[in-house]
Amino acid sequence: MSLLSFLFKGKTLPDEVEILDREDYKKAISKGKVQMVDVRTKGEFMSGHIKGAKNIDLFQGSAFESAFSKLNKDKPVYLYCQSGNRSQRAARKLVKMGFTKVYDLRGGYRTWTY
């Protein structure tokens, strides 16, 4: 085991998850109807979000899993949160739930608005 893999154990993302910078994310979601989810709290979502996003709060436990179970696991899912931490946690959960391709916005919503 290398020193880096030891230090960052558990921090690597599954192969099904890809992190996109703002421009690539914007390009990807502009190609038509996509499954885009904001995993922030309702209050954060209400204070501003990416047009077309659905709000499914990561911290809502079983309601989180229930809401995602209604989405198509074979189609890509585009996630974001405020900074990128919660969406990466959500991405790991989705892979465990059987989602085959998950995209995450690098730096989260805060990078979207600048």
Rank of each mutant, 00 (worst) to 15 (best):
K75Q: 15
K27E: 10
K54V: 13
K51L: 14
N72Q: 11
F45M: 04
C81D: 14
G61N: 13
A67W: 05
Y25I: 01
G52E: 00
Q60T: 15
Q82R: 15
I56A: 04
D24R: 12
S30F: 13
L20C: 03
V37C: 06
K42Y: 12
K70W: 00
D57A: 02
Q82K: 13
K51P: 05
G32E: 04
G52P: 04
T41N: 02
T41F: 00
A53T: 14
K70V: 01
Q35A: 10
K75V: 06
A63W: 02
E23V: 11
R22Q: 04
K31T: 14
D21E: 09
E44I: 03
E44M: 07
L79H: 09
K33R: 12
P76Y: 13
K75A: 09
I50T: 03
K54L: 11
D21C: 03
Q35G: 03
V37R: 08
D21N: 13
E65N: 13
G52F: 08
G52T: 08
L20N: 03
R40N: 03
R40W: 08
L79P: 09
N55C: 12
G43L: 09
M36I: 15
Y25A: 00
V34R: 06
Y78M: 07
D24G: 00
E23M: 08
A53L: 10
S87G: 07
G32T: 01
E65Q: 11
F64V: 03
Q88F: 04
A53R: 07
S30M: 00
V77K: 12
M36P: 08
L20F: 05
V39Y: 10
Q60H: 11
K73R: 15
G43C: 01
Q35L: 08
D57S: 11
R22L: 06
S69R: 06
K70E: 14
F68K: 08
E44N: 07
L79T: 05
L71I: 10
L71Y: 13
D57C: 10
F68Y: 13
Q88C: 14
S87N: 05
R86G: 04
N72C: 03
T41K: 05
Q88P: 00
V39P: 07
I50N: 01
R22F: 02
F64P: 06
N85S: 15
R40F: 01
F68E: 09
I56E: 01
F68N: 09
D38K: 03
H49W: 02
R86I: 02
G84H: 05
V37L: 05
F45S: 08
S83E: 09
Y80N: 08
A63N: 11
E23P: 02
D38V: 09
E23T: 12
K51Y: 06
G52I: 07
K70N: 13
M36K: 02
E23K: 12
S66A: 15
R86M: 08
A28W: 03
I56V: 15
V34F: 04
Q88N: 11
V34I: 10
F45T: 01
V37T: 06
K70M: 12
F64D: 04
A53E: 10
C81H: 04
D38G: 05
I56T: 04
S62A: 13
N72A: 11
D57I: 01
D74W: 05
K26C: 07
G48C: 03
G52N: 07
